[in-house]
């Protein structure tokens, strides 16, 4: 097969996917989107059986996926899945609709309503932007005053999205969370992200360790991935002491360098193999 790989920055993930495509006997077609012209009215589609979307910039991922699909290309992940995973409000809503356990979450559009939610939820609470990654601009409030301070800061930011307050219960977890990989209905590998800090993102220094894929974890991750539209996803799970496993966030252009390094699992080949099977169907 001819397999495109749309990217802006080359990281371990993009290199290893290109290597996997070639090692599996396919033809890799890197598409560096940053310097390309994309004419929307003319169908100058890329000669690829499918395109793996790997742009680190979400705006570029969304734009180029839209255009590739307009050209008639199959993109992994597709536009719906990208949108569903990029917006935490959409993700949580889609999970809740399928009764998939998530931390208690509510939305408010002003400080007083957010405060009322937090009082009902109980402190501490976590306030997140609805979009964004790597733990950016996520804050934890231990009491009413610190919540009001955080909300005031958010409301003075120029981005109107920061006035949508996504308020979530703080989950008391055991100094780690789980990043499990969903690859077209399978859960081939997972890691713990261990940190003494409450934010466990590896981008913020969280340490990766292998995590066994138990039946309980697999079942939850498959349900969550299916609910968001399938494809190739990173599903972040919190281990609540009271409520058990909770799906926290889902990533649509997932990073896996640390997972491959600590588990030795050849995830890039798994992604390519499973996607080829799905596209051939």
């Amino acid at each position: 097969m001819n397999i495109g790989l749309a990217y802006d920055v080359v990281r371990f993930e993009e290199k290893s996917l290109l290597q996997a495509i070639n090692h599996l006997g396919h033809v890799s077609k890197p598409i560096h989107v940053v310097d390309k012209e994309f004419w929307i009215n003319e169908a100058n589609g890329f000669d690829a059986d499918f395109i793996i979307q790997r742009c680190v910039s979400f705006s570029r991922a969304l734009a180029t996926t839209t255009i590739f699909e307009r050209y008639g290309n199959i993109v992994v992940n597709n536009l719906d899945v990208l949108r569903n995973t990029a917006d935490k409000l959409i993700t949580t809503s889609m999970l809740a609709k399928r009764n998939i356990p998530t931390p208690a979450t509510a939305i408010a559009f002003n400080k007083q309503t957010a405060l009322s939610i937090a009082r009902k939820m109980g402190f501490p609470v976590v306030v997140k932007p609805v979009s964004g990654s790597w733990g950016r601009n996520i804050a934890r409030a231990f009491d009413e005053q610190s919540l009001l301070d955080i909300l005031e800061l958010r409301e003075n930011m120029p981005n109107p999205q920061m006035k949508v307050h996504y308020v979530q219960e703080h989950v008391d977890k055991p100094e780690r969370d789980i990043r499990a990989f969903y690859v077209w209905g399978e859960v081939p590998v997972a890691i713990y992200r261990v940190s003494k800090m409450w934010k466990t993102n590896t981008a913020l220094g969280g340490r990766a360790q292998p995590c066994p894929v138990t039946d309980e974890l697999r079942e939850l991750v498959v349900k969550a991935g299916d609910a968001l539209g399938g494809g190739v996803l990173g599903v972040d799970i919190l281990e609540s002491r009271e409520k058990g496993l909770l799906v926290n966030e889902i990533n649509g252009v997932v990073e896996f360098r640390n997972t491959v390094l600590v588990t030795g699992y050849d995830l890039p080949s798994k992604i390519v193999e499973n996607t080829v099977k799905v596209v051939k169907r």
Binding site: D35, V56, S57, F58, S131, G252
Partner: peptide, 24 residues
């Protein structure tokens, strides 16, 4: 950042800074 222009000439340019919409 490694860069190839339309005449296929390779060069280096200053890499883009990490932006607010980067990452997963």
């Amino acid at each position: 950042e490694y860069f190839v222009d339309e005449k296929n000439a390779a060069s280096l340019r200053v890499a883009e800074e990490v932006a607010e919409d980067w990452g997963q």
